[in-house]
């Protein structure tokens, strides 16, 4: 789909119009930030990488000629920026549900309180934290594709373009990723339940 209004904004941005570029930032910062957050598991890194992505976009806009959808180009850039970052720090991305505040004190990150789903029990904050952990223990490929699909709601065709793989591969990789996530969540759910029962008898010593 070609969004003519967006094309016009991009066109202005390509010519160096900072206001037009800001419009693009505003339109895309939420999915990009969430992509980075899921990829790194760390809000500070996510903000830095989002910034880095958009600045790369700004610098290379001159060479953007609508070869691909702008969003595809942007997601690919963000995705690669995250992977570069993850590989450069050469460690598993930190599972971080805490962040340092201004005084350098660790504090819990405010996860959004999800509103209850119609036919489901309310998703608790615990579940959300468990999910964040589970995602971080997925391998990069699985985390990346799940995020592109679930967080950014991209179609298989778009994901195929972004990752440079076939749509069939998108489908099978997503299925494997979902299954991997499901297994991790099931296990961690059991652990949490087990831990809760043990805690009453003196704690299980596992940080959850």
């Amino acid at each position: 789909m070609i969004d003519i209004d967006e094309i016009k904004v991009i066109k202005r941005a390509v010519k160096g119009d900072a206001d037009a570029f800001e419009q693009l930032v505003l339109a895309y910062q939420t999915p990009i930030y969430n992509l980075c957050l899921r990829m790194t598991g760390n809000p500070e890194d996510a903000a830095d990488l989002s910034q880095e992505t958009f600045l790369k976009v700004w610098k290379s806009l001159a060479s953007f000629h609508f070869e691909a959808a702008f969003s595809t180009w942007l997601y690919r850039l963000a995705s690669n920026t995250c992977l570069d970052h993850i590989r450069s720090v050469k460690r598993r991305p930190q599972l971080s549900l805490t962040a340092e505040d201004a005084d350098g004190e660790e504090k819990a990150i405010d996860l959004p309180d999800p509103s209850p789903l119609p036919e489901e029990a309310a998703i608790t904050k615990d579940e959300n934290e468990r999910l964040a952990r589970a995602i971080q223990s997925l391998d990069e490929q699985h985390r990346q594709i799940l995020t592109l699909r679930a967080i950014n709601d991209l179609s298989y065709a778009e994901i195929a373009d972004i990752l440079g793989i076939k749509e069939g591969t998108v489908k099978s990789r997503l299925a494997r990723s979902r299954n991997a996530l499901r297994k991790i969540l099931t296990e961690s759910g059991n652990d949490a339940a087990l831990c809760a029962s043990k805690t009453q008898k003196g704690g299980c010593g596992v940080e959850v």
Binding site: F21, T30, Q51, L111, P112, P114, L117, I151
Partner: peptide, 19 residues
């Protein structure tokens, strides 16, 4: 549903930082 629910808002100053 959990995955979709977990979308968070970017830091309020992100746009400013970029711009």
């Amino acid at each position: 549903a959990l995955l979709k629910e977990s979308i968070v808002a970017p830091p309020a100053d992100l746009t400013e930082r970029i711009m």
